[in-house]
Every structure is written in structure tokens, then in C-alpha cells.
Design a protein around this nucleic acid. Structure first.
Lengths: 351, 351
DNA sequence: CCGAATTAGTCAATCGATTGCTTAGCCACA
DNA sequence: TGTGGCTAAGCAATCGATTGACTAATTCGG
């Protein structure tokens, strides 16, 4: 006299017991058919169980399963700012891959070291996730020791860290490609807007850029340091413009920095690309900037997706590796890059 | 002979049993002290339990607790695209408020109707979350019936829906303020870039804009419809520019649309704001556009946060309400708004 | 000084799924 | 006929926390 025919979905999701009762078999049999496997069951019984499970739209209660098996089917990602398009891309890549792989993704937008630590501890000690993707820098001794004392499978993404593996794009190659592109357009006085060497991505981009300059036999480029933000890029660009030997070609080694730099040019009435050329990084949508920004695009979505794969690999016992995304940075030619301006002092006038 | 002094964190997180064993009390006592409450305990015992819990860094196993109490301490949010800054803001507001409120947030970036349905069903029938925030439009019959058949506490955010409550900003007021601002700057031929009326936000913005125009005694504005995306804005703006009576002031009723429209102006060599004025929506960072965009800012972060509050309220048995965020849309004056151009016909020449 | 009330806990079932251990029946083989 | 080996499935413990029912010891009122 169960009236949950198919007229209306049951208000309470079905359990193993429901299926077992309906078929007059033991719940353990149902469980073994639906997930375990290591049991011999008559094919009629098996089929009946599968059919009934389907009919009731059965899905295992995640917590119950987790309690027994110690696997949650969840991953977490820790990042500093969802409104930064770089992180938004990484997270999107991760969230989608997680779904494909059968995980759910728990996102935490952490502000500072204290909240990073507390969120980390919470996720780990409440056993909410099987593994973590960490997109905040773990420079501080404190965070590192918290991770070491409360270990959980994890990878860093877009960051290298002394502890655990990492997934990054080839930042060196991006820097190199930027330099090469500027050189090929005829520029000889180059500028680089980066962040402090504390930030390992900035450091690698700078190193790649430097390599490009050296290969071209150019003198040292003008290296300006500021935070990877719109404001940081704006202010860094002003410094470049005020430098005694103003560069004619600039690599803004981060998307936000590129946008900020462009704004600075406009305010100073420096025309792009007539007076100065700009290349930025990761600007899929900078086609809508004014002028559209020439960019070195890296695979941020893929980086996020790959981070999920690596955590999954660790969980399956495979040896984790430091991954550098294979698809190389690629040049997206738009309008902010042009030849260097003609007039300004052939090669240094008198002095 | 327990050697987990405090030299190294225990590799396995502590359980109630660990605390109970150390203090020679029953786990139920520990449980009642740490969470329940309905029990009388000597204050020494109580303190000893609390101290020991602290020392072991005890946190309840989320799944175990959930299995018993049927509360997960998790919420989920369904949204169509994390790389859209509007959604990124909403999610950020939600994620942060969730953390403040003691929830973890499960994020799903769903592509289409099919994945929306499957993710929804998964979260609900695996009992992964206590409630859901839905930021995708639930126009289709199919999604609505899935929600009805598998109910869970939920609110829609930035969307109204026939089923359940919603949290929105005052889109009407935003539209109205945009119109009023353009009128006060002297514009009389207005344009509106929206999306189809299927999208309830677009519809309300349009209605508010219309009200502003009517109050000012203006003739009907030029209404262009296209998707809320950069590309959509770009193409819509071209239509406006090609209209027989080109408007002098335009409201781009979405951030991406505003950015796309600005790009269109540049390509057509229409100067902003000399030849045409633009107001856009929600452009916190459009200060870095060229020119910086005048915008009507609404409280997206707050909307996300409030959605969490509303779900929490439902979970606490309070009657849910349709919420319109109190803090009103506000004008951010930047450079894309100016007076209408002088030359073109004082007020309509002959007629 | 006795019964009742209070204090300070303990006991045991439960949430839903998993899994190692048994078992009942059946057939084959020597 | 006894032994072994299958097959098909049931039994019961377990994961960790919660909670209603229960009890032993003390205190109190009359």
C-alpha cells in the first residue's frame, strides 16, 4: 500500500532500505549491486534492483556514504578574489571539470592569511572535502605550517609552493613571447610591469621577458613593480611614462595591470599604439578595450581543470607531479601593438 | 601511552570518542556539552571537555552530524557563468556571507537546461546542501517541474520566478535613474540597450527607463534588444548608431553591454561623450575604461549576501519574502556622460 | 527520617550506506 | 555417502555524532 507510485515524486529521497523493502531483499544486497560489485547476484535480482533504484530516482546519501567510506566526492578551492577575472577563469575551469569528474566543488573566497587558515582548517577537520586546490600564495610560514600539520591531498594552482605540487601555465614562455613580439615590431626600449618577485608567477614572467631581451641583444628593460591590480597597473604605467628614457613597448604581465596601464595612457594623452605599444596577458575579452589589447593568452580554464585532475590523481594513489599546462601561450594580435614612433631621437641625440 | 602530546598534530582529526576516552566520560556527555546543551554538567567537567576539545582541535565530522541531524551546513549556488562579472560579484557576496554565517558554499557553473537539471537533482537527492541559491533563469517548464518535484529551500537571485522567492536589486529604480540623469544632462533623444522581455531584469530596467522618459515628457526612446553580453552590446550599439534619428544619450542596461557598446563607438569613430553619451550599469571598475564609464551601480555583492540570508531564514522556519535590496542604485559620475552635441538641430528644426 | 526532586551523567538507538563474515542450498566427485 | 566447492544472499558491525530515556547519587522539604 505504498502510494508513491509515479504520480508524485516522494517528498523524502529514497534510501537503500526503500529499495530493499520493495524487493524483499537485504539492503546489503542492494548496496552491493548498486555500488560495491564484489558479489554474485542472480541477474533477475540485479536487474530488479537496478530498475527499482531507477524508478525511485535513488541516489546514495552523500553523508552516509562518506561516513563509511571516508570519501566525500567533494573538492574545495581557496582563492583570494572571485571578481578578479584571472581567478574567475581558473575557478570556472575547475568547477566544470569537477562536475564532469563527479565531484562537487566547494568555493571559498578568502581575504587574508587569517581567513585562509581558518577556512582551511574548517574544511579539513570537518572532513568536508577529499582534496583542495589552493590558489592563494602560501608564502607565510604560518600557512605552510598549518598545511603541514593538517595535511590533505592538495595542489597549488597558478602558484608554486614549497609544499606539495602545483599546476601552472608556462609563464616564462609567455614573458618570452611578449618580448619577442615587441622586438619583432621594432621596439628596442622595452618596459615591463610586474609584481614583486615574491609572487612566483611575476618572477617567471619577468625571467622569460628578460631572456627574450637578451636574445635580441637589447639593453636592460625598464622594470616597474606594483601589485597585480587595475590600480597597480595604472600607477606602474605612470612610472614608466615618467621615466627618463620612456620605453616604446610595454609588457603588462597581468590582465588587470594591462587594463590599468591602458587607462593611464589615456589620462596622460599618450596614444596607443602610436606613441607606445602595449602587450598584456590573458585578455580574452580585451578585444572590447579601447584600443583592443594585444595579448599573450594562457590557458586559465585549462589550468583550473587540470588542477582538479591532479587532485583526483593523488586521490587515486598516483604520484603527483608539478604540471605545466602543455598548450603554450599564444599571441592574440589586436590594436595596442604597433611599430615604435618615428621622430623621437634617432638613438640618443647629443649626450 | 598516547603519544599525540602536542609535538605533532594528529594525522587523524579528533572525534568525540577521543575526547571522551581521555576524560573518562561518555561520548554523549561530550556531545551535549559541545553542541547540544540540554544537559546539566558540573562546570569542571564541562570545562575539561571544552579544553580537551580545544587541545585536540576538535571539529564535528560534518557527514556524521549531517546524517543524524539532517543539516549539512552547506548551501549551493547555481549560475550560468562565473566569468561574467555580474555573476562573479553575486557569487562573491554569497560565498563570503556563507562563510560568515557558518555555511560552506558549493558552486556550480551550469551551461544549459540539461546540466542545470542534472546538477540540481544531484545536489538535492544526494542531500548535499540545506538550501539553494538559483541565479539561472527558470523560465522553462522542465526546470520548474524538476524543482517542484524535488523541493528544497531556495531563493532566486537577480531573477524573479513563478516558484519560490527572489532577491533582486531595484532594477526599475536603476532604469529610472539612468533616464533622469540623461535628461538632466540635456538629452532628449534617448536610446536603451536591453535584452528580451523574457529576462525579467531587462524588463524592469526598461520599465524604469520608460517611466523616466515619460515624466520628462520625452517622446518614446529607441529600444534595442540583444543579449546581455559584450558582443550583444556591441551589435546593439551599432543598430543605435545606424538608426535614422540617432540618439544622443544611451543607457546600456548591463555592464557587458556597456563595454561592448563603448567598443562599437570607437570602431565607428563616434566620440564619447562629445558625440554620444553612455550610461551603463554595475560598472565598479569601468573607471578604467576609455573613457571611464558613467554608471548606475547596484549592490551585487549585497544581493548575493542577502540571498544567503534568505535561505538561512527559510531554514530557520521564518516566512520567506521577496526581497528588493534596500540600498538604492546610485549614480557614479565619470566621463562617458556629457551634454548632447550642439550642432545637430536645436530642437528639431522645421517641424 | 522518608519520599520527591534535582544533579550529573550513562545507555542505547538511530541516521544510511558499506563490507567482511556466514550460511543455506545445491551439485559434483570420489 | 561424505566432502568440497559454488552460488546467492543475509547478518551484523561500523563510520561519528546526536538525543530521548533512564539511573545513581545527592539534597531538600516536611
Amino acid at each position: 500500500m505504498t502510494d508513491d507510485s509515479q504520480s508524485k515524486g516522494p517528498p523524502r529521497p529514497a534510501t537503500l532500505k526503500d529499495i530493499a523493502r520493495a524487493l524483499k531483499v537485504d539492503v546489503s544486497t542492494v548496496s552491493k549491486v548498486l555500488s560495491g560489485g564484489g558479489i554474485s547476484v542472480r541477474s533477475e535480482t540485479r536487474q530488479a534492483i537496478i530498475d527499482e533504484a531507477h524508478r525511485l530516482n535513488y541516489r546514495a546519501h552523500a553523508s552516509a556514504r562518506n561516513l563509511r567510506t571516508r570519501r566525500t566526492g567533494a573538492m574545495g578551492i581557496l582563492l583570494p578574489n572571485l571578481m578578479n577575472p584571472v581567478y574567475a577563469s581558473i575557478v570556472r575551469g575547475a568547477v566544470r571539470r569537477a562536475e564532469e569528474t563527479g565531484y562537487v566543488m566547494l568555493v571559498a573566497d578568502v581575504e587574508d592569511e587569517a581567513s585562509t587558515t581558518s577556512v582551511y582548517l574548517r574544511l579539513v577537520s570537518e572532513r568536508r572535502v577529499d582534496g583542495l586546490i589552493i590558489a592563494v600564495s602560501a608564502r607565510s610560514k604560518e600557512i605552510i605550517s598549518v598545511i603541514e600539520d593538517n595535511p590533505i591531498p592538495h595542489v597549488f594552482v597558478n602558484r608554486r609552493a614549497s609544499i606539495g605540487r602545483s599546476v601552472t601555465v608556462d609563464d616564462q614562455a609567455a614573458g618570452y613571447l611578449a618580448a619577442k613580439t615587441l622586438v619583432e615590431a621594432g621596439h628596442t626600449r622595452l618596459g615591463f610591469i610586474g609584481d614583486s618577485d615574491d609572487l612566483d608567477t611575476a618572477q617567471r614572467r619577468r625571467a622569460g621577458f628578460l631572456r627574450g631581451c637578451i636574445e635580441a641583444g637589447l639593453p636592460p628593460f625598464l622594470d616597474v613593480v606594483g601589485p597585480y591590480s587595475r590600480k597597480g597597473g595604472y600607477e606602474s604605467a605612470l612610472k614608466l611614462l615618467d621615466a627618463p628614457e620612456r620605453p616604446t613597448g610595454v609588457f603588462a604581465s597581468n590582465l588587470l595591470v594591462g587594463i590599468g596601464a591602458l587607462a593611464a595612457m589615456r589620462v596622460r594623452k599618450v596614444r596607443v599604439p602610436e606613441d607606445i605599444s602595449i602587450i598584456t596577458l590573458d585578455a580574452e575579452d580585451a578585444i572590447y578595450a579601447s584600443p583592443p589589447l594585444t595579448a599573450i593568452a594562457t590557458s586559465l580554464l585549462e589550468m583550473g581543470a587540470r588542477a582538479v585532475d591532479e587532485v583526483d590523481a593523488i586521490l587515486h594513489g598516483r604520484e603527483p607531479q608539478d604540471v605545466v599546462i602543455e598548450s603554450p601561450p599564444r599571441l592574440i594580435m589586436r590594436e595596442s601593438l604597433g611599430p615604435p614612433p618615428k621622430p623621437p631621437k634617432p638613438s640618443r641625440p647629443s649626450k
